[in-house]
Design a protein around this nucleic acid. Structure first.
Lengths: 250, 250
DNA sequence: GACGACAAGTGGTATTGACCACCGGGGGAC
DNA sequence: GTCCCCCGGTGGTCAATACCACTTGTCGTC
């Protein structure tokens, strides 16, 4: 839409056609070729550099960087996550029921404890083998007519978006280590008390409303998190800046 | 140093003195007050917005946002990590020895298998109670004269930087769930086979050299990861862009 | 042939000026 | 008194320009 995002996409196409380490045209060159200001080019390149596609070297040029590893955890669905790991995703519904939220779930979803909540538990498969158990909790009135068949044939987030007009834009996730209990072990086909991840995810829509609470158990022997680490930014501020200033910001 | 970073820090000071939801001065106002161009102000605010300190509302203003939760994993030391969680960090050296790297460690650190490597195992405490076991592996010639006392009195990363002139700028970390073995259970004071995180971290310096390999076992009952989730960016590019273009990027 | 100074080109920073879409409140119409 | 419109101010985008610090390759000197 904007020139900046157009530039970004054009450069991204270019990047994908070049090898790692190759230089892309200079900012001034791109600016002239694409008919946009250098500022616009820089903003686009800033974006791509921040996302790890490009590395800049002052005085030398801008180069295609090595394929990044996931820098931050994003709001990816199981389906997309597995595909990006080169695995074929599938799903089996273990349970699909509606029941009152109760105290804990009501608090998490910000609904009354008596509010009917849909609870859908699915076994997640990767390349035909069990990978995780995922249990979605969502206010039942948000997803009228949802069936087990729907869940097995579509990505839940796509369903929410396309059928129910709910677009998820963010969330918060806690991760802790655990071991599988009897039920989980049986469903996943692993020994009792196998190491596993427990994810708890609370997602919200554009309007800031809580949409769903998801609890997942991932097999520790098949799933690991890999992240890039960056050095945190330092403040670099004067130690006594606050003591000196007392009215405003100067 | 640069006006942009000065502006950033000044606004950050201001942000910390305001309440959540309050508006900061407009970009044009800040620009006039600080004597810098609006673009410079914008770049600084972009930074702070990206880091979660500010939220912008077009047509309305820029506001102090709710305290962010960690959006991405950063290269923080145990010391800083605990402090940010409001806990008092401490450390006990369990083992400090030098031995040949061997095949696996040599490959990880990119040194010869016969190269002497310093292996330092420390029990990490938070508020006086065990939190983790951290084992650092580093080429011995990088840190001549390092003692157990050093490790207990200083942050290892500070030592590397200040005494040995090695600055760590990034790394890669894998996280998996596990259970504690006999030794770990005894050192941590938890029951055998308690759930725990295993972190494996490989860090590198500015020059891109591998600096150290760190293996950590964190108590699952005391430590959890909390992250914000963002919706991944979409490409928004024409499906057949590559098919059409064949010479360059237009 | 080896070394070093120089120049061209690169990314990094900053300024000024302009227009747009959007939000919100105040003032007018009713 | 209530409603609605409009308009000032806000962030979002973009252009043209300038100077700096740095890299790198070349050309000259020795």
């Amino acid at each position: 839409m904007t020139k900046q995002s157009e530039t970004r996409d054009l450069v991204l196409d270019l990047v994908e056609r070049l090898d790692v380490g190759e230089a892309i045209p200079s900012e001034r060159q791109l600016s002239a070729d694409l008919g946009v200001s250098r500022l616009t080019v820089r903003a686009a390149l800033d974006d791509l550099a921040r996302e790890g596609y490009l590395v800049r070297r002052r005085g030398a040029g801008t180069f295609v960087s090595e394929p990044k590893i996931a820098q931050e955890l994003t709001m990816t669905s199981f389906t997309d996550d597995m595909r990006s790991r080169g695995l074929r995703p599938a799903s089996e519904t273990l349970e699909l029921r509606v029941s009152p939220a109760g105290a804990r779930l009501g608090r998490l979803l910000r609904v009354s404890p008596s509010e009917p909540v849909l609870i859908a538990s699915r076994l997640r498969l990767a390349d035909g083998e069990s990978m995780a158990i995922e249990t979605v909790h969502i206010r039942a009135s948000r997803v009228p007519g949802l069936t087990a068949r729907d869940l097995e044939q579509h990505s839940f987030y796509e369903l929410l978006d396309e059928r129910y007009g709910i677009e998820i834009v963010g969330g918060e996730q806690t991760i802790e280590p655990t071991v599988t209990d009897e039920d989980e072990s049986e469903a996943l086909g692993v020994p009792l008390h196998s190491p596993a991840f427990r994810f708890e995810r609370l997602t919200h829509s554009q309007a800031g409303e809580i949409v769903e609470f998801v609890e997942s158990i991932y097999r520790g022997d098949r799933y690991r998190l890999v992240t890039a680490l960056n050095r945190p930014r330092e403040r670099q501020r004067a130690r006594n800046a606050r003591a000196i200033s007392h009215d405003g910001y100067h």
